[in-house]
Design a protein around this nucleic acid. Structure first.
Length: 615
RNA sequence: GGUCCCGUAGCUCAGUUGGAUAGAGCAUCAGCCUUCUAAGCUGACGGUCCUUGGUUCGACUCCAAGCGGGAUCGCCA
């Protein structure tokens, strides 16, 4: 799987580079008679220990200039400074040309950032489907689902932010042997228990019987082994398993009783899932039920067989991917029934039929299925579907616990509802100690702690590169300090408080905000380092959002949001805002604060995280 | 065994297309609230970027081999 087909906005040039590139090209033309390719210029931000904002490394250009690094950098620097007003001065260190961008440029940008949404991208008319969550209906959602759900949800919002129309899709694996196991166990041992009678959430109740099934199954295996069967035989012949298998056959034969039980228990599960989704703040536009799609694909495979894309062996239909470095794979069993792959072929085709303009389909699925999707995409390409190149497996790493891998059989899974409850309680525990929340009503507090707790878990799961396997440390995940979601929320609330106070005390903020940057623009030493740092991070944000959209990496955005609020906190703690006497400076700092708040809110929205007005 | 992914501070993670003295958070230690929200800020401590070769002006980054960890390779889903 490559990102080859992913770039949705291939090159992102920020507004500063848009001015620097032509100036540099002109310099190369004038100085060395060379037409410089824009892509050859490597911009980097200047390291803090040197003066400057943008650094250009001239080593790659020595052949063009025919001079040493210092002379080359010096010559380019002089030319650019002379011809581009926004370059105030420059310095050369070894082969590095450090350009100092004039305050006037930063002030101009700040003004823009205060007045409009710098993260707004125009709609591009492209339609993208993002599939995520995809639970089985036999047990509750757990930590593994949480990484999936938050990742998929965030990616869908990021794509939406850069101008796509996004369809959020959930596949619900509502049929199969797993749900039959829960059904059999409930029938045998449930005594008519319901969510109402037990007080259990529907998904928890059904999950309870799935566990119950497994217990009985294991006991039966032990009994059979004691009676002289081999383990393998016992695993196949345990009566309760045979019952579940029989039930699956009855389900497929449309047996009315089985279907009714199935509908009832799935209904409980959906109520449970929906409660969890609502609390998580995630949503879906389109639901695909496996019970309705599992028959798909068979005809497509048969057609492929006719076309010679597939072949027959031992009565089964195969695909040969050895040329692609993969293996051969069965698509239809000897008895003519489908495998999982067949179904995925069919549903992909169906989705592109349903959404004719669909330009991309993203599957948010764990990396243990890397091979499966590789094969799926190759097959669809072989079947001749143009859109097959627009399929993407958003593959993410497993979530490990400090105790090792999560295993449902060993009861080491972290339940989603319980985890959320825990982290919300933690937010409450630390929040209640702060006197500043005294004026909050009970309802306001509850809403706030909910918001903070969810931010903690979501941010914890999203700040790590999705491709990488990550460790879930329960203690760290409920942390509200440092590199966390609540820290970002706190900074936002801090700014909002400042702005409220400004409004009340000055009552002229809005008129001061716009124009104040303009007033400062004539003074070239107006900007403090703390202000400059914030402005540069704001300036970089659209490129970061774009990158997050191209790479489908919320972590990029999460980390940049953290850097921004960190820089803001430093500013806040060292530079007076309301206490500044100079009205222009005060207005400028307020506008800058407002811009940080707006960008932070948008970035957090892209992560699926809400921010409070006070905390 | 084949294929794929990963290895950066005590722990968890960043690190742009190869660039200057590799950065954060947590933990530990030391400071900062009669002053705009201390869920904050400042500083200290902390590194064989798994190892060895190679490519080059330059490698945490690219290539090869090795070591360590994981995933996957079913007429399962």
């Amino acid at each position: 799987m490559t990102l080859r087909s992913l770039p949705l906005r291939p090159m992102f040039q920020d507004r500063l580079q848009a001015q620097l590139v032509p100036a540099l090209q002109a310099a190369f033309k004038d100085l060395f008679g060379h037409d410089l390719d824009a892509k050859a210029i490597g911009f980097q931000s200047t390291r803090p220990e040197f003066e400057g904002d943008v650094t250009i490394n001239v080593f790659p250009f020595l052949k063009i200039s025919g001079k040493g690094p210092e002379q080359t950098a010096q010559a380019i620097g002089e030319h650019v400074q002379a011809n581009l007003l926004i370059v105030a001065r420059f310095n050369v260190v070894k082969g590095f040309l450090n350009l100092v961008v004039a305050d006037s440029y930063w002030l101009g940008f700040s003004q823009e950032a205060g007045e409009k949404d710098i993260l707004a991208f125009p709609a591009n008319g492209k339609k993208v489907m993002v599939e995520y969550s995809s639970p089985n209906t036999n047990k509750p959602l757990h930590l593994g689902h949480m990484r999936n759900i938050f990742l998929g949800h965030s990616v869908s919002r990021i794509l939406q932010s850069v101008g796509h129309e996004v369809i959020r899709a959930q596949v619900i694996n509502d049929r199969g042997i797993h749900i039959c196991k829960s059904m059999v166990a409930w029938q045998k041992f449930g005594k008519g228990e319901t969510p109402e009678s037990s007080g259990l959430k529907g998904d928890k109740l059904v999950g309870k019987y799935y566990v119950e099934f497994d217990k009985v199954y294991k006991r039966e295996i032990e009994g059979l082994v004691a009676a002289g069967k081999t383990k393998e035989q016992a695993e196949k012949e345990a009566p309760i398993l045979l019952e579940a298998q029989a039930m699956l056959l009855n389900w497929e034969a449309n047996d009315a009783d089985v279907r009714a039980l199935w509908a009832k228990m799935n209904g409980w599960v959906y109520d449970g899932f929906n409660a969890t989704y609502t609390r998580m703040g995630v949503e879906f536009d389109k639901l695909y039920y496996e019970s309705q799609t599992y028959v798909l694909g068979k005809n497509d495979v048969l057609e492929g067989l006719k076309k010679g894309v597939f072949y027959e062996k031992d009565g089964a239909v195969w695909v040969d991917n050895t040329a692609e470095g993969l293996d051969e794979k069965v698509l239809l069993r000897r008895d003519g029934t489908s495998v999982y792959m067949t179904q995925d072929i069919g549903t992909a085709i169906k989705r592109f039929e349903e959404y004719p303009g669909l330009s991309k389909l993203i599957y948010t699925v764990g990396n243990e299925q890397d091979y499966h999707f590789k094969v799926l995409f190759i097959i669809l390409r072989k079947l001749g579907f143009e859109w097959a190149r627009e399929l993407f497996h958003l593959s993410y790493g497993m979530v490990d616990l400090p105790t090792g891998k999560m295993k449902s059989r060993e009861g080491t899974v972290v339940d989603a509802d319980e985890l959320i409850e825990e982290v919300v309680n933690e937010a409450r525990a630390s929040g209640e100690q702060l006197s500043k929340l005294d004026e909050f009503s009970a309802e306001e507090k509850t809403a706030l702690f909910e918001m903070i707790g969810l931010a903690a878990v979501k941010y914890y799961l999203l700040k790590v590169d999705p491709k990488k396997r990550m460790l879930f440390d329960p203690a760290a995940s409920i942390d509200l300090q440092g590199h966390t979601g609540p820290f970002i929320q706190y900074t936002y609330a801090r700014i909002k408080s400042l702005l409220r106070k400004a409004d009340a005390e000055l009552s002229v903020v809005s008129s001061q905000l716009s124009g104040s940057a303009g007033q400062l623009r004539t003074d070239n030493s107006a900007l403090l380092p703390e202000e400059r740092a914030i402005i540069k991070l704001l300036h970089h944000f659209p490129a970061v959002l774009n990158e997050a959209a191209i790479k489908l990496e919320p972590s990029t955005l999460a980390n940049h949001a953290y850097e921004l609020v960190k820089a803001y906190n430093t500013f806040y703690q060292t530079v007076p805002v309301l206490k500044e006497d100079d009205a222009a400076k005060r207005g400028f700092r307020l506008a800058l604060s407002a811009a940080v708040a707006a960008v932070t809110k948008k970035a957090m929205w892209c992560l699926g995280i809400e921010v409070p007005e006070r905390m």
